[in-house]
Design a protein around this nucleic acid. Sequence first.
RNA 1: GCCGCCUUAGCUCAGUCGGUCAGAGCGACGCACUCGUAAUGCGUAGGUCGGGGGUUCGACUCCCCCAGGCGGCUCCA
Length: 670
Amino acid sequence: MSTVAQSVPPVVVPAGTTAGTALREAGLPGKGPEAIVVVADGDGALRDLSWAPMVNSEVRPVPANSPEGRSVIRHSCAHVLAQAVQELYPEAKLGIGPPITDGFYYDFDVPRPFTPEDLQALEKRMKQIIKSAQRFSRRAVDSVEDAKQELAAEPYKLELVDLKSDVDTSEVMEVGGGELTIYDNLDPRSGERVWGDLCRGPHLPTTKHIPAFTLMRSAAAYWRGNEKNPQLQRIYGTAWESAEALDAYLELLAEAERRDHRKIGAELDLFSFPEEIGSGLAVFHPKGGIIRRELENYSRQRHEQAGYEFVNSPHISKSGLFHTSGHLPYYADTMFPPVQFEGEDYYLKAMNCPMHHLIYRSRGRSYRELPLRLFEFGTVYRYEKSGVVHGLTRVRGLTMDDSHIYCTKEQMPGELRSLLRFVLDLLADYGLADFYLELSTRDDSPKFIGDPQQWEEATEALRAAAEDSGLELVPDPGGAAYYGPKISVQAKDAIGRTWQMSTVQVDFQHPQRFELEYQAADGTRKQPVVLHRALFGSIERFFGVLTEHYAGAFPAWLAPVQVVGIPIAAEHAAYLADVATALRAKGIRVEVDASDDRMQKKIRNHTTQKVPFLVLAGGKDVEAGAVSFRFRDGSQINGIPVDRAVAEIADWVARRENDSPNAENFKVGG
RNA sequence: GCCGCCUUAGCUCAGUCGGUCAGAGCGACGCACUCGUAAUGCGUAGGUCGGGGGUUCGACUCCCCCAGGCGGCUCCA
């Protein structure tokens, strides 16, 4: 990623002068990555450089290499794409074309979907348009009627004009801001109008101000995001303030592809999705099984220390349970269809909470037992639509590290605070330590049930806990579960991508629905609050995220094979076998490679398998009672006495060191 | 679920216009080699070309259906 520009000092645009002129006079750059592409007026609204205020106005110049600047570049680039599409495919009707994170798209109604060859041709045409330096020229349309007349050939734009009053979001760039405007693309020499689009802007001064772009892919997308609407063909692209910034972005994508857990999972023999079992249903191979077991074991240990009690529940139950919980009416379409026997519908469980509530309810509870923390690695099945299943991150069978905490209303704020702390600490132990939080609340959608007062109370308790953590808190209105608000923990991985990890939810609904109670100190019966909490979310997903975070080079404590002994010649294998025995006695997963391969080949094999410690021994080592280390990064430490090597490896693993060991950080020399 | 694309050996991939094109590298196996920090050499075996139907004298190749995958859309308790 390229650097974001320093903020540029404000500039005063004299009345009747264009912003562009004022900037030029102030000596601000008009080209290059720091070129000023638009300005923000006193209200923060972005304006074209051709904007000329009625009165002297102080504006904030927006450079190309700022988030706002990039959005403008991308938005303008989307226009160029649309122009190219309509030139090459005149029958194409325009949808919308906004900038998005890291790029832009434009939707088109075309008789035939775009092919990769089409994209190439479009890119070529776009380059010509950009080179020709067409001017983006803003023009206000006097009335809705005029707009409709002008846009008569564009049915989707007409729809937007009609929707103008109630569509005014950043996603719909076409309309908004109280007036309708059209941006015309003008030929720089003749001034002739070459193309135009309904758009509220702002835009770059000319197409030539698009320094670097590329088209990425095409795909179908529903008009206005509704699956009942027709599908349009969407073309995705990206555009940046410089060729370097574009290259850096493409390199990031390439790195993400190299880290793809689906690819690494096959290469390292961790898991697979046998077609015979069905889509979205994973099997973990022995090596993946080890990683999974280590992940789970450490979590179990920490939960035990934190006062959780372990429970187990079945994978299937009668339908009544999910009616009681309220899940069935809401999520029937993502539950597997029921199996019928003995006159009953049985459903595969899609969530663990109802089972845990029954455990709570199995006998009377006293306030002295609260908070009661039930924990289970509970496997659930969800009928994800065929088009959404994706590696380990979106599956149909998954194991949640699910817990439900039953506490009094008074205990809730404190419990939420310690819960969040616990979650963040534990994630950090797995090597994810860069977080922000998201607070998902209700909006006025009818899907949210329950007393608004209770929602308010729960939301505030969550907010307080979140603020207490000191982390950034991002609001997510309307993102709550139907039964209560939640905090989700977003973790940044090694290459800066964010993943939703843990969630903590407050639930006043289930205690009512399941008639949960406890006997209070004053002898009355009261209703507990339920906190739902998953840390990994799903173990499969967490596994996938960790695989990508570490690019398959798992920390030694998680690595399926922690040490491989490599003899310099076959005669040294027995010596290494003894070293391996000593390591194994310390609980280390170790193998000796006694195959016929050459030593160099063995190093290559086990390095590509991401084994953290390669322990070599040849004549010199045997003589000295020593071994030599080679690490994943190619660094080495030679001649370490065997007992010392064994102790240091065991210690490294026991410490759960998340860094990859190398000659620098593996201090055996002392 | 919707749209587009894809599926050839365990893996990664060639395969022209429907007719000696069932092919390579890696891996596996065998033999030789015994080597000081990322690929030793030689040889052998492996495929109903995802499955099913159709068109054709003839289908890996064209058409239809299904399954699985990829990229999006929608969805994600």
